[in-house]
Design a protein around this nucleic acid. Structure first.
Length: 262
DNA sequence: ATGGCTAACATGGTTAGA
């Protein structure tokens, strides 16, 4: 929040219409500069821009009916807003990007993939390939790049509450992890793992079977940063507070702070 | 136990999420 710091957060809200009260309460308690939302599930005409403005944020959104939808909200005006992956005629609203204080921020909602071997799984892997090409180009333009959002991939077994039960399943399959590794190989770093974290840190818990109470979750919401920015990261954490509230999103927000001092 | 729960769209039951 200070002039030399930039705090970014990602939150899959699973319907912004339903979660707007949580967003207001959480923002009132949380200092941040940029918030990347996923699964807003709103067409742009229905986006609650006035209510967001009343919270001291402005930004840009890229939505569609019923499914998907992303929004990038910030204390300061966003520059160079881009919706979708340029050159990829994807009808699903999953990406929005903008620049704040020289930092390029890309908000992503990676496809779920449904089941290994399904058409949706193939779409997920193809989509991640297109994302990788886009990010390579963005990295060439912007040394300071953050790519944050719902990746729908748990990077390692320690990001999974029960690795044996999940082995080979969608979100942890070797193909998905290889696709994530390709993104990291562009020069991106999962900043959460640059710091000591509590054991069994997750960002998503199934609504069913009392998964949150049992901490039966996955860490699939990630903040990736370019090398020039990752070395300036001073902290990254999951804030599970709103997951405890009534009628929560199944995802918790993840925050990361960067020191932008010269 | 292949279920469990939530949201959208619709207004009963399907689709999708992860």
């Amino acid at each position: 929040m200070s002039a030399a710091e930039l705090t970014v957060a990602t939150w899959n809200v699973n319907s912004l219409r339903v979660r707007l009260p949580h967003l207001k309460d959480w923002l009132a308690a949380t200092g941040l500069d940029v918030l990347a939302l996923q699964e807003t599930k709103l067409v742009d005409a229905d986006f609650p821009g006035a209510e967001i403005e009343a919270l001291g944020l402005s930004g840009a959104w890229h939505g569609q009916k019923t499914y998907n939808g992303v929004a990038l909200l910030a204390r300061e005006p966003l520059a160079d807003v881009a919706r979708g992956i340029p050159g990829y005629g994807d009808e699903q609203a999953r990406v929005i990007a903008g620049t704040v204080r020289g930092v390029r921020i890309v908000d992503v909602y990676v496809p779920n993939g449904q089941a290994v071997g399904s058409d949706k799984y193939a779409y997920k892997l193809a989509w991640l390939g297109r994302l990788g090409a886009y990010l390579a180009a963005e990295l060439a333009r912007f040394p300071r790049l953050v790519v944050l959002g719902d990746y729908n991939i748990a990077p390692e077994d320690r990001d999974v509450h029960d690795p044996k039960a999940w082995e080979g399943q969608v979100h942890v399959s070797p193909g998905e992890r290889a696709a994530l590794a390709s993104l990291l190989a562009l020069g991106l770093s999962d900043v959460f793992r640059r710091f000591e974290q509590p054991e069994k840190s997750f960002s998503w818990w199934d609504y069913r079977a009392a998964a949150f109470r049992r901490n039966a979750g996955l860490r699939i919401d990630l903040v990736l940063a370019s090398a020039a920015l990752a070395e300036r990261c001073t902290g990254c954490r999951v804030d599970a507070t709103p997951r405890r509230w009534e009628r929560p999103s199944d995802h918790a927000p993840v925050l990361a702070t960067f020191d932008l001092s010269p």
